[in-house]
Design a binder for these strands. Structure first.
Length: 804
RNA sequence: GCCGGCGUGGUGGAAUAGGCAGACACAAGGGACUUAAAAUCCCUCGGCGUAAAAACCGUACCGGUUCAAGUCCGGUCGCCGGCACCA
C-alpha cells in the first residue's frame, strides 16, 4: 500500500480546521509559549519555496511545545500596506484594497496547504481599519509625548516612486525598492525621535537572546561613539565647537574643517574675502546626490576661509579654517579639528592643500601616512600630555578642557531620527490636523480610525504632494482644539508602521477598547521566540524595539523588550545557487512540490536542506530522499508487531534519538534532528520489526516535522486517540542513552593502531591493559619505551613512545 | 577601510567541551528482483596505493600550541552579509 499524500494531507488539514486545535487559549493558569514569524507582505507573485522555511521551522517548535503541554500562540497576519500593491493598482486600475484581498486569499491558500499550525482565528491585516486604528493611536501617543514632530528638512526623494525615503531605504544612492535615482528635496516631514532611545536600544541588547551578528549590526547602525566637544575661539570672537574622539591629539590640530552647510559661514559672510569661491563650493556640494558624494570620496576638495582663523585652545596657535564636503553637517557639530598626522582623511586633505603635519603620537612615520593606532603610541610634542599613553592622554586633556571651560566629554550617534511621512495613498493616514491657530493637533482618539478615503485616482503627484492632497472635501475639517477650520495631514505612514507593533495585536486581536487587554499583554509578553530575516535587522527589528520601549515607558506593555529570543533563517537559493527571482527564472513554487511530493515531504526537505541559519540552494533531486524517508516510515506499518514497550535491542537507539531530536529542535538544528530520525529508522529496519510502542514514539518524534502522515499512521493503527488529541512528547532516560559497550581507539604517537569494544564503565587501568594486549598495538610498541599514557574514558588510549 | 560570518568528498551538509574527519542524505557506479521500465532491496563511493591489504596524504594556505587540531592561537588568501568621508 503506497502512501497517498493527496488523500491524507487534506483530510487532516480539514480536521484541524474544524476542531480549531491550533487556537491558543487565554487560560492564564497554563504555561505559555509565543512563537512568531515575520508576517508576510502579500505580493502578487505568491509564495516561493523560500517563504515557508521560517514558517515550517517555528511550526516544528510550536508543535513540539504543544506536545509538551504548553499553551502555544503561533499567529499569522498580513503586512499589506505598501508600494508594490499600490503600483499594481495604478497600472491595472483596480483599487489596492481589492488587490490586497486577492493576494491575501492566494497566500492563505498556499500556506494552509503546508499544514502550518497557525492560529487563523487571530489573523490580522495592517490595512484593516480595526487594526490601523491602533497604529494611529500609537502615533498620537508618540506625538503627545513629543516624540513625533514635523520638520522642514532635506530628504531623500525617489524620482520613480515619487516618495520620500528613510535613510535606511536608500542603498548606494538609489532607491532600495526600485533602483531609481534618489535626489535631495527640502520638505516638511513627520519625524520620530528614535535617537532619544539610542542608548537603551544598545544597552538593552544585554536583556535579550539574539544572535551576536544581529546585536553587532544593531550596535553598528546606532553607532555610538564616545569623545569630546571642544570649543575653539576664532578671530571674530565666535566659538567654533567640534566633536572629536581623539581629544588626545589636540596639540596636533593644524587646521579646521567645517561642512559647507555650517551656519557660521553666513554669519561671517561680510568678513570673508573669498565669499564667491565659498558660495560656488556650497552650491556644488548641494547639487551632489548622496551617490556622487560617496563616489568621489577618494579625492578631497575644499576652500579655505580667507579672513577668519581659529585658535587652538591648548597652545593658542592660530590655524586656518576650511570648508569641505567630507565633513557632514548632520553628524557631531558639523565641524572638525583636523589632525593630519593621526587621521587618514585629514592627512589626505593636508597633503593636497600643503598643510603642516605635526606628530603628537609616536609610533609611525606621519610624513608617509597617518598613524592611527591608539593602542601602542606614546604622546609627544604635546606639552602636559608628553609621555602618556593615548588613553591616559584622553582622560587628562578632557579633564583639563572641562576645568578651563573649553570642552567636555560627549557621546554621539550615527543613528538619525526616523523620517515617517510618505507621499503615497496606500498607507495609514497620519491622524493630525493643521490649524492656523493651534498648530498641529492630533484628532480626537474617539475619532479613530481615521479611514483612508476611497478615491478615484491615487496616483502619485509630480508636485511631491500625497495623492490625498487633491481630496479637498476630506482635507478640510475642523480643529479638535479650537473648532476653527483646519486641514488634515495628507501624508501617510511608511510600511514599517504597522509591523512595528503587530505582535502585540495577536495577543488580543479583536479588542475594540485597546490595542490589547492588560491581561493578554501580561500573559503573552514577551514573544518567546521570534524568527526573521537578517535584512530586517536595522529596519523592522530596530523600529519595533523603539516603539515597544515607548509603549513600555507609557505603561502600555509590561516588558522593556518585545522579543526574548531572535533567530534568523538563511535564504533558499535557486538550483543554480543564485537568489530566487522571477527575472532569473529560478523560482520554485511550493504548490508544485506539495502536489508532487506532499506537504510533509516539502516541510521535511526545507528543514533537512542544511544549517537553518545559512543560505542553501534548492535541489529538486534531494527532495526525493525526504519523500523516500516518509515512505519508509509509512512502510513500518508492514513490519508492525505487538508490544507495548520499546524492546531492549532498540532501547538505547530510541532514547538517544528522543534526546537528540528534542535538543536539536531547541537549538535550531533541524537538519541533524531529521538525520537522527533517519538513522533511527535504519536501526529499526535492521531489526526487521517494530513494536506498537516503538511506532507510537517514532510517530510523535516525527510529528512536528511531518504532521499529516504521522497522524494518519497513528490513527490507522489505533496507537492512541490522536497525536494532537492526547500524545505527549516522549521523555528520555539518560541512563538508557548509553550502550553497554563502546568502541574506543588505541593510538600510538597519535596514529590509530586498533579499535576495541570495551564495557562502557571500564576504568582507565582496564582500558590501558586491554589496549596493550592488542596484537597491532604490541607490534607498534616493539622496541619502544613508553613515555606517556593518555587515557580518555569512553574515547581513546594514546601511548606516546620513543625508540629505546 | 571598518564590523560580523564562512571556507570540509562529485553535491547538500555532520562532527557536544580539543579525542575515530566525512554522520544523515543526494548524485554516480555495480548487483538482485522484473519480459522491460519504474519502484524497492543489497554493495561500492576523499586521494594515492595494492591482487588484496598495509603504509602514506587529506578539512582554503603558511606557521604555532598540544600526547592529540576541522575545532585553539598568529599570519595569508578567497567568498558572503552589513556599514562606509560618522571626525
Amino acid at each position: 500500500m503506497k502512501y497517498n499524500h493527496k488523500a491524507v494531507e487534506p483530510k487532516w488539514q480539514q480536521i484541524w480546521e474544524e476542531k480549531g486545535v491550533f487556537h491558543a487559549s487565554d487560560d492564564v493558569s497554563k504555561e505559555k509559549f509565543y512563537a512568531l514569524i515575520e508576517f508576510p507582505y502579500p505580493s502578487g507573485q505568491g509564495l516561493h519555496v523560500g517563504h515557508p522555511r521560517p514558517y515550517t521551522a517555528l511550526d516544528t517548535v510550536a508543535r513540539k511545545k504543544r506536545l509538551q503541554g504548553l499553551n502555544v500562540l503561533y499567529p499569522i497576519g498580513w503586512d499589506a500596506f505598501g508600494l508594490p500593491t499600490e503600483n499594481y493598482a495604478i497600472k491595472n486600475h483596480i483599487h489596492p484594497e481589492i488587490v490586497t484581498k486577492k493576494n491575501i486569499a492566494r497566500f492563505k491558500k498556499q500556506i494552509q496547504s503546508l499544514g502550518i499550525s497557525f492560529d487563523w482565528s487571530r489573523e490580522i491585516n495592517t490595512t484593516d481599519p480595526d487594526y490601523y486604528k491602533w497604529t494611529q493611536w500609537i502615533f498620537i501617543q508618540l506625538f503627545k509625548h513629543g516624540l513625533a514632530y514635523k520638520k522642514e528638512m532635506n530628504v531623500n526623494w525617489c524620482t520613480s516612486c515619487k516618495c520620500v525615503l528613510a535613510n535606511e531605504e536608500v542603498v548606494n544612492g538609489v532607491c532600495e525598492r526600485c533602483g531609481s535615482e534618489v535626489v535631495h528635496k527640502v520638505k516638511s516631514q513627520w519625524m520620530l525621535k528614535i535617537t532619544e532611545y539610542a542608548d537603551r536600544l544598545i544597552n538593552d541588547l544585554d536583556l535579550v537572546n539574539y544572535p551576536d551578528r544581529v546585536k553587532a549590526q544593531q550596535k553598528n547602525w546606532i553607532g555610538r561613539s564616545t569623545g569630546a566637544e571642544v570649543d575653539f575661539e576664532t578671530t571674530t570672537g565666535d566659538i567654533l565647537t567640534v566633536y572629536t574622539t581623539r581629544a588626545d591629539t589636540l596639540f596636533g590640530a593644524t587646521y579646521m574643517v567645517i561642512s559647507p552647510e555650517h551656519p557660521l559661514i553666513e554669519k561671517w559672510a561680510d568678513k570673508l574675502d573669498n565669499m564667491d569661491d565659498i558660495r560656488a563650493y556650497q552650491a556644488a556640494a548641494a547639487r551632489k546626490s548622496d551617490f556622487e558624494r560617496t563616489e568621489v570620496a577618494k579625492d578631497k576638495t575644499g576652500v579655505k576661509l580667507q579672513g577668519v582663523r581659529a585658535i587652538n585652545p591648548v597652545n593658542n596657535t592660530e590655524i586656518p579654517i576650511f570648508i569641505s564636503d567630507y565633513v557632514l553637517v548632520s553628524y557631531g557639530t558639523g565641524a572638525i579639528m583636523a589632525v593630519p598626522a593621526h587621521d587618514t582623511r585629514d592627512w589626505e586633505f593636508a597633503k593636497k592643500f600643503d598643510l603642516p603635519i605635526i606628530e603628537v603620537v609616536k609610533g609611525g612615520n606621519v610624513q608617509e601616512e597617518a598613524f592611527t593606532d591608539c593602542a601602542t603610541g606614546v604622546m609627544v610634542n604635546s606639552g602636559m600630555l608628553d609621555g602618556l599613553s593615548v588613553d591616559e592622554a584622553k582622560v587628562k586633556i578632557i579633564d583639563w578642557l572641562t576645568k578651563e571651560g573649553k570642552g567636555h566629554s560627549k557621546v554621539n550617534y550615527k543613528l538619525r531620527d526616523w523620517v515617517f511621512s510618505r507621499q503615497r495613498y496606500w498607507g495609514e493616514p497620519i491622524p493630525i490636523v493643521s490649524c492656523d491657530k493651534c498648530g498641529y493637533v492630533p484628532i480626537d482618539e474617539s475619532e479613530l480610525p481615521l479611514r483612508l478615503p476611497m478615491v478615484e485616482s491615487y496616483e502619485p503627484t509630480d508636485t511631491g504632494e500625497s495623492p490625498l492632497a487633491n481630496m479637498t472635501d476630506w482635507i478640510n475639517t475642523t480643529c479638535p482644539c479650537c473648532g476653527g477650520p483646519a486641514k488634515r495631514e495628507t501624508d501617510t505612514m511608511p510600511q514599517w508602521a504597522g509591523s512595528s507593533w503587530y505582535y502585540l495585536r495577536y495577543m488580543d486581536p479583536h479588542n475594540s477598547e485597546a490595542l490589547a487587554s492588560k491581561e493578554a499583554l501580561n500573559y503573552w509578553s514577551p514573544v518567546d521566540w521570534y524568527n526573521g530575516g537578517m535584512e530586517h535587522t536595522t529596519l523592522h527589528l530596530l523600529y519595533s524595539r523603539f516603539w515597544h520601549k515607548f509603549l513600555f515607558d507609557i505603561g502600555v506593555v509590561p516588558t522593556p523588550e518585545p522579543y526574548a529570543k531572535r533567530t534568523s533563517h538563511g535564504m533558499i537559493l535557486g538550483e543554480n545557487g543564485e537568489k530566487m527571482s522571477k527575472s532569473r527564472g529560478n523560482v520554485v513554487n511550493p504548490d508544485d512540490i506539495v502536489d508532487e511530493y506532499g506537504a510533509d515531504t516539502m516541510r521535511l526537505y526545507e528543514m533537512f536542506i542544511g544549517d537553518f541559519e545559512k543560505a542553501a540552494p534548492w535541489s529538486q533531486a534531494s527532495i526525493r530522499g525526504c519523500r523516500r524517508f516518509i515512505e519508509r516510515y509509512w512502510n513500518l506499518q508492514n513490519i508492525l508487531v505487538d508490544g507495548d514497550t520499546i524492546r531492549p535491542e532498540l532501547e538505547s537507539a530510541f532514547h538517544k534519538a528522543i534526546k537528540k531530536v528534542g535538543d536539536d529542535i531547541e537549538n535550531i538544528k533541524f537538519n541533524t534532528a531529521i538525520a537522527a530520525l533517519m538513522a533511527l529508522i535504519n536501526d529499526i529496519s535492521n531489526v526487521k520489526s517494530i513494536s506498537r510502542e516503538e511506532l507510537r514514539v517514532f510517530s510523535i518524534l516525527l510529528n512536528p516535522f511531518a504532521p499529516h502522515v504521522t497522524e494518519e499512521v497513528y490513527e490507522a493503527n489505533k496507537l492512541g486517540e490522536g497525536i494532537l488529541a492526547e500524545a505527549q512528547w516522549p521523555q528520555y532516560d539518560e541512563s538508557k542513552c548509553v550502550d553497554e559497550t563502546v568502541e574506543i581507539v588505541v593510538q600510538v604517537n597519535g596514529k590509530i593502531k586498533a579499535k576495541l569494544n570495551i564495557p562502557v564503565d571500564a576504568d582507565k587501568e582496564t582500558m590501558l591493559a586491554m589496549a596493550k594486549e592488542n596484537e597491532k598495538v604490541t607490534a607498534a610498541l616493539d622496541g619502544m619505551s613508553i613515555l606517556k599514557e593518555i587515557v580518555v574514558p569512553k574515547k581513546l588510549v594514546n601511548l606516546v613512545v620513543k625508540p629505546k
